[in-house]
Simulated scan of single mutants.
Amino acid sequence: MKAPLPPLLLLLLLGAQWAVGTGSLPACHYPPGMWCSSWEIAVACQVEKQCVEYYQRADAKPASLVQIELYYECLCGGCKEFLTSQLFPTWKMLKDIMNVTLVPYGNAQERNDSGKWVFDCQHGPEECQGNTIEACLMNLLASVDRYFPIIYCMESAVDVIKAVQPCLAIYQPELTTEKVMECANGDAGNQLMHQNALRTNALSPPHKFVPWIVVNGKHTDDLQRQALNSLFNLVCNTYTGTKPDACKTEKDHIHMNMDGVCLN
């Protein structure tokens, strides 16, 4: 058995529980802090079951958060739909059991021109600018709790670029549009996009379209289908720890099809 625990702790965890079942505390000659210090004492105090359950709970490793990575491009219709209708709402409800990683790059191509990276994006220069702005927001704000609502706001808008200023004003008014554009138009944004290119090009299997969804480091056709149909249910079913109350009711499937994806 393990070393003695604080008497008050064991009184709360074991003594009260025992009293509920029997109407009185056990007639043993050991203080509560010793009840789980050895198996002999646990038997003498009639708390064997409680001691075993307590140490099982204490030794249990916390469940790992479900890791969701989204590889996307800011002007792809399917990416916008998945981010706004599935990923962001799911994150808002289940952020305690999941982590979200956003990688804006998608089907872009990069080349090195005299030491500077030049990008060609599927939906033109505006998409390259939008991807870079979103990468800069992540870098400048660091926390997903701070930058994800802004990116959701931008992706919900008809014009992603024009939405930058009003979305910042709503969610992070202390960060100026000028500061974000300084990053996006400078070396910092260029390097951030290069890192996103490296990360996207290193995917295994290589991405064939976007949105490309990776769950706990894995991408399969089945995981992609489940994520597109109901990311909420997928996260709840994947999480191995105690389910939050939100997971007790399964959400309806959205049945997103492949029509909106942007092929590589």
Rank of each mutant, 00 (worst) to 15 (best):
A3D: 04
P6Y: 02
A19I: 11
L25W: 09
C28V: 12
I41Y: 01
A44W: 06
A44F: 13
A44K: 15
C45G: 04
V47R: 01
C51T: 07
Y54G: 01
P62G: 07
Y72K: 00
E73Q: 06
E81D: 09
L87Y: 05
F88W: 11
F88G: 00
P89T: 02
K92H: 09
K92F: 04
K95R: 15
D96E: 14
N99A: 01
L102K: 07
Y105E: 03
S114D: 12
W117R: 08
Q122I: 04
G124H: 07
E127P: 02
Q129H: 10
T132I: 06
A135D: 04
C136H: 05
L140C: 12
D145V: 15
Y147K: 01
P149V: 10
Y152N: 12
V158Y: 09
A163H: 13
V164P: 05
E174Q: 12
T177R: 12
G186R: 11
G186D: 10
T200I: 01
N201F: 11
S204A: 13
V210R: 13
V214W: 00
G217D: 14
G217E: 14
K218F: 05
T220G: 02
L223T: 13
A227P: 10
S230I: 06
F232Q: 04
T240H: 10
G241V: 05
D245L: 15
H255N: 15
H255V: 15
N264Q: 10
